[in-house]
Structure formats: structure tokens, C-alpha cells
Design a protein around this nucleic acid. Structure first.
Lengths: 181, 181
DNA sequence: TCTCTAAGCGGACACTATGTCCAGTTAACC
DNA sequence: GGTTAACTGGACATAGTGTCCGCTTAGAGA
């Protein structure tokens, strides 16, 4: 079990990191910045979090778990009970909301390839795959990742910030993707 | 116009970089490696290419331009003449081939967000958008990037290397995406 | 309350990569 | 052959990473 000072420092680190990630692009936040802002030494920081990504993951964890819970046991159309295409659309809408609220964190935790290595991606993948199977889609395995690709944080932030699209417009477009089921 | 020694060094740099990118993941190739392998100094390297990405772009350029030419003026279904959905499928197939041959270069040139800043992305985007318009798809702007997202090099290499999918399986899945038109 | 010890702490250090700079070199035009 | 502007390459300054280790302290047991 965790010592009191350790717990205090963990909280400080997460709080400081959240503030920094909110203030500027995550790749511009250094481990040193976080340590300084949290008032702890480098060694203390590295003891728990070997890199920026693991801190962002820790910060995201709570929100992602809540959504995962709703996918598994929540009300339809997000949870079980609705037709697969509707559930997929609801999933897209929920992910857009998650991205809207926390893109900076997702960008911090998933840089390029690492996206696929996070536990969360595995969960989203399994969920969408099960929807494809439920819809009777043939050869679902090659279709899952293309359907998840538009949810990459880089794509979302490009559509939002560079193109100026609204979350609603993005959700609507993703809903049209569910036609492939 | 370029001096003879400058041209010789440019050729050396590109050749050396191509070999290094083929041999290991691009982010493990340092500018120093490239300079050493090409037998030139750091200053010479940086004079022309400010970073890894610009070298990879230069190496890719030729292949991408050829595909762009075929999209604009080639035979259908890739070029003009075929129905939009078929042209999109042909585009997907061509991009899969391009990725299959040069993922390592695309991975080198496009890290996360920078993907959207390259000239090539703008071209692919304009092309797919025009197909959506030709198909009479309403509000095409929000749909373009989701349709291009599966072609991100990270997604492709995940499907190929981690999932073990074949280029044919990937192409087939992308073809099914054209149903949204 | 005191002692003991293992967990925790934090800053110094070594290392790696980046990007710049400038004194010397050389191609190419006259 | 002389002149000049472009080119060269390595030294340097900078910045970030990750590790290491002597010191500190929380908290359990006597």
C-alpha cells in the first residue's frame, strides 16, 4: 500500500500535468515542466510515470472507463439492446464528446502508433467488432480499424481546429459511416 | 541553378536515407546517421533538409506525383470517366499499393498531425471531396477526412504487421467503405 | 514514545539528438 | 588565372531524456 507522501505527490503530479496539458500542446510539455509544476524532483516523477503518455493515460482513465461501462451495461442505444448500426452511431457520438472534452489528453497519450497499443484501443476495437458480427457483416476484422481510424485524435483536431467543423457536423458524418454495416 | 558538388551530395543524401529508412523504423534514424552514411557533414545535410520528414517527402514525391497524374488524367476507373464510387474504390486500391511499397517512407514523412500539412494530403483530400460532390453526397466536407483516415500509415502498418492482414483484405474492406457515397 | 527500516525523494549526472554557425574550400563564370 | 558566391563540415550551444544514489521520512512494532 502507498505511503502518505507518495499519494500526495501522485495527486500533485496529476493535477499539475492536467493543467499543463490543458494550457499547451502535449508534446511541448516536458517531464521537467511537470516535475517543476508539481514541486517534485525528476526522480520522483519517473518513479511512477516513465513518460508523458503514461500520465495522460492516467488522467484519461477515469473518463474512458465510464464510457466503457456504459457500452457494456448502459441503456440502449449505447448499451446492449439496440440494433448494431444504431449502437455504432451512439458509440461515435459518445467518442466525439469524449474527444471534444479531452483531445489534448488523448493527443498526449497516443502519438501515432502507440494508439494501438493502449488498452483503450483494444476495448473500442472489440466493441466495434462485436457490433459488426452482430450485424452479420462478413469479414469484420479488416473493417474494424478503418471504422475506428476517424476517431484518431489527430483527425479530430484537424477537423475541429483546422477545418472549423463543429462536433455535431463530425458526429453526423460519422453516423453516415454506419451505413457500411 | 545547382552546383555540381551540391547535386552530387543531394543524390548521396537521398540514396543513403532511402537505405536507412528501409532498414529500420524511421524515427530511429537520426539526422546524424544520414549525414554519416551519405558521407557529408551535418551542416550540408541541414542546408537542404531541415528534418527527417522533408527527406522522406523528397523520396516519396516521385511515387505520389505519378499517382496524382493518373487520378487526374489516367484511364478509368482511377481517372475520370467511371462512377464516383468505383473511382473511390480504385483510389483506395492504388493507395494500398503505394502504402505497401513505401509505408516506411510515409511513416517517416508523416508523424501524427504533420500528415495533414503535407501537400499530398491536400491533393488526396481534394480528390475524394470531388468524388463525393460528383456522387451528390450532401455535406461532403465532414466526410472527406473520415474516409481518408484509414489510409494513415499507422493504421495500415497496424493492420499489416500487427493483425497480419493482407493488402487484398485491406483493399476489400476499404471498398466496402465506398458504400457511404 | 522511541527505534528501525524500507519506501520514497530529488537533484546531479551522463547521454543523445537537435539545429546553428562560421572559417575554410571549391565550382563555375569571366 | 582571378574572383566571388555558393557550398562544406565539424565544432558548439542547447534541450530533453532517463538513471543513479545518498539522504529523508512515514509508519509499523517494541
Amino acid at each position: 500500500m502507498e505511503r502518505a507522501d507518495a499519494a500526495r505527490n501522485r495527486a500533485r503530479i496529476l493535477e499539475a500535468a492536467a493543467a499543463l496539458f490543458a494550457a499547451r500542446p502535449p508534446h511541448e510539455v516536458t517531464m521537467d515542466d511537470i516535475a517543476k509544476a508539481a514541486g517534485v524532483g525528476r526522480g520522483t516523477l519517473y518513479r511512477r510515470y516513465p513518460d508523458r503518455a503514461s500520465i495522460a493515460v492516467a488522467l484519461l482513465d477515469e473518463h474512458e472507463r465510464e464510457l466503457q461501462e456504459r457500452l457494456l451495461r448502459g441503456d440502449p442505444p449505447l448499451g446492449p439492446g439496440a440494433p448494431p448500426a444504431e449502437r455504432l452511431a451512439a458509440f461515435y457520438a459518445a467518442m466525439v464528446r469524449l474527444l471534444e472534452d479531452h483531445v489534448h489528453l488523448v493527443l498526449g497519450s497516443e502519438v501515432g502508433r502507440t494508439r494501438f497499443e493502449t488498452g483503450a484501443y483494444g476495448f473500442w476495437r472489440a466493441h466495434v467488432r462485436s457490433l459488426l458480427v452482430a450485424a452479420g457483416t462478413p469479414r469484420p476484422d479488416a473493417l474494424v480499424d478503418p471504422l475506428l481510424a476517424p476517431l484518431a485524435p489527430e483527425v479530430y483536431s484537424y477537423q475541429r481546429s483546422d477545418l472549423g467543423l463543429t462536433p455535431e457536423q463530425i458526429t453526423e458524418a460519422l453516423t453516415r459511416l454506419t451505413r457500411v454495416l
